[in-house]
Amino acid sequence: MISACVLIRTERGKFAEVTERLKQFKEVKNVFAVLGRYDVVADLEAADFEALGNVVLRMGRIAGVVFTETLVEVQAKGD
């Protein structure tokens, strides 16, 4: 299992819609609108890098999402 934090910026006023839409992804364990330089933050867990890449690409195509920055977990041996 590999975790990632996805920082998202949405079109003005669309953060609630985007947050609801993201809740439908099974890999999204938690998602919430935030104050600060981003609008929404998602806590992802995927089976592996490929699955993680797929879900992030799908997230980027959601109506209202204009920017995503993905911080992928560094998995060292023995983690």
Binding site: N30, E69, L71, V74, A76
Partner: peptide, 15 residues
Amino acid sequence: RKAFYAYGRWDIVAF
């Protein structure tokens, strides 16, 4: 709830 090292602009992410 969760904290890990990360690739990218930030070194550690914590939820």
